[in-house]
Structure formats: structure tokens, C-alpha cells
């Protein structure tokens, strides 16, 4: 069993969101970087759980980014995984990022390719779907559960108002979310081991970007909360009806 886990570097969930250079770039000043929570908590830990069941499993991590992503990759390797591959490309065009991952995936002949549900910065939820199309593999999105039986995977995925169970023959691409695995914290042994795990850097095959970010913008601040006395609920109902017009 060979698993490829896609890892993305994102700002911490509490990071201040601001932009510089005429609102064309994210202000990285003072920002703490983390492994995208969906990648860490669900896809990576799920891969580790599978390896614990079958120790012959090989886990590779892949990230697309500059050298500044390496501390994040080491953090991921501290949780688990045998080696990591960094595709040396800085891009926020999902198409090019997916193409770089697909390039790695093709060479490695993986049985399972995991992504998180989305990244918490660009929220595009594109990579899993794109990689599956580039490799012509089945794609199960927003998975909450996965079990293997030989080369058959049984998965649960979220649907509107419920869950769907399906079976697929490996290899497949899966996007992972809550339910898939239990969040873990790395231990000292893992952190030590991560230092010496191989981290390969490869160059991307050039691909033209299909999109370009022009500008960023912050939403208009709320004009301020209107406080209503706790004993005047009739007034709140009236405001919701006549002012907000939502009920």
C-alpha cells in the first residue's frame, strides 16, 4: 500500500488578515504558519492510522511551494510519514498546483491520494478533484470514513442532510474531513525522527497559470450591533420582520 498525502501551508486560524502592495498580496508580517488543519488532522492522521494497521504501508507527503514550506513539512513528518517531496513552485493557481501534484502522483504509483477538504486560506477545494481528473481516477469528496479490504475501499462521504456509503477499487483520490481520523499531537520521538527523514525537492514541469489574483479586499465592517433589552423580545421580532426582513 502506498499513500500520497497532500500537505499545504496556511496561516494560523487566528492570523490577522490584511493585505499589502495595493491590496495585491497577503500581509505575512507576524503570521504564524501551520499545516492546513484538514490536511493534518484528517488526511495525514488517516494515512498514519492505515500504516499502523498495515506496517508495510508507505506514506509520502507532497507539498507545492517554496523553501519556506519546509518547516511545515518537517512538522508533518513529525506526526508520521516516511518521506516528503516538495515541488519547488510558488503558485496560487489551483490548476498548476494540482498539475505538480499529479506529476508526483504519476511517478509514485500510489494506491491512495489524500487531500484535505479545502485549505483555510483560499478555500478553493479544487486540488483533489483536479488531481483525480488529471490521473483519470475515481474521486470521493468530503469523506468522513474509510476502510480498506484488499484493494477495495469502503468510504462514507457527506451529502446534503446526510451521508452516502460507497465502494471503490484502488487507486482513488479522496478529500478528507472531520470524522476521518482523530487529531493527534507529535511526540518527541516523532520530532527527532522527522529531522532525518528524506525531503526531496523537485522542479515542476512548467504549466501556464489559468487564473491570476488581481486584488484582495476586506469585507465592510458591520455598522455596529443594535442591542435589545432582554425583556423586549417583541421589539426584536419586529426588527427582524420589518428592518432585517428575514422572517
Amino acid at each position: 500500500m502506498k499513500i500520497l498525502v497532500c500537505i499545504s501551508k496556511t496561516p494560523d486560524t487566528t492570523a490577522k488578515i490584511a493585505f499589502v502592495e495595493g491590496n495585491t498580496k497577503f500581509d505575512e508580517n507576524g503570521v504564524q504558519w501551520i499545516i492546513n488543519p484538514y490536511d493534518e488532522w484528517y488526511s495525514l492522521v488517516k494515512a498514519i492510522e492505515l500504516k499502523e494497521k498495515d506496517p508495510t504501508t508507505i506514506i509520502h507527503l507532497v507539498t507545492v511551494g517554496g523553501a519556506d514550506t519546509e518547516p511545515i513539512i518537517r512538522k508533518a513528518l513529525a506526526l508520521g510519514g516516511d518521506e516528503a517531496i516538495r515541488v519547488n513552485s510558488i503558485s496560487n493557481d489551483s490548476f498548476s498546483v494540482a498539475a505538480s501534484i499529479a506529476q508526483v502522483a504519476k511517478e509514485g504509483a500510489y494506491d491512495l491520494i489524500f487531500t484535505g477538504k479545502e485549505t483555510i486560506d483560499y478555500n478553493s477545494s479544487c486540488i483533489g478533484s483536479m488531481v483525480s481528473a488529471m490521473l483519470d481516477l475515481p474521486f470521493v469528496s468530503l469523506a468522513t470514513h474509510l476502510e480498506l479490504n484488499g484493494t477495495t475501499a469502503t468510504l462514507k462521504r457527506e451529502i446534503e442532510g446526510g451521508e452516502e456509503t460507497c465502494e471503490a477499487i484502488l487507486p482513488i483520490v479522496v478529500s478528507c474531513q472531520k470524522g476521518m481520523a482523530e487529531q493527534r499531537i507529535p511526540n518527541m520521538r516523532g520530532i527527532m525522527a522527522a529531522r532525518t527523514k528524506p525531503l526531496k525537492v523537485i522542479e515542476p514541469t512548467s504549466i501556464a497559470a489559468t487564473t491570476t489574483i488581481k486584488t484582495f479586499e476586506l469585507p465592510l465592517a458591520k455598522t455596529g450591533v443594535k442591542l435589545i433589552d432582554a425583556d423586549k423580545m417583541d421589539e426584536l421580532v419586529k426588527l427582524l420582520k420589518e428592518e432585517a426582513k428575514v422572517i
Binding site: D93, S94, F95, A98, E118, N123, S124, S125, C126, I127, G128, S129, M130, S132, A133, M134, F139, S141, L142, E158, I159, E160, S175, T210, T211
Partner: peptide, 23 residues
């Protein structure tokens, strides 16, 4: 941009070599 749309639109974009904006 719902559950199926998220699974489908990016793959369609790849097959059409099209740029995509989700959300």
C-alpha cells in the same frame, strides 16, 4: 458551490483546460 459542485467543477475545468473560480 455545494457538495457535488465542489467535487465536480474542478475536474470539469481540468478536462476543458479552463480556469476556474470556486466560491
Amino acid at each position: 458551490h455545494n457538495i457535488n459542485g465542489k467535487a465536480l467543477a474542478p475536474a470539469v475545468a481540468v478536462k476543458l483546460e479552463a480556469g476556474i473560480v470556486t466560491g
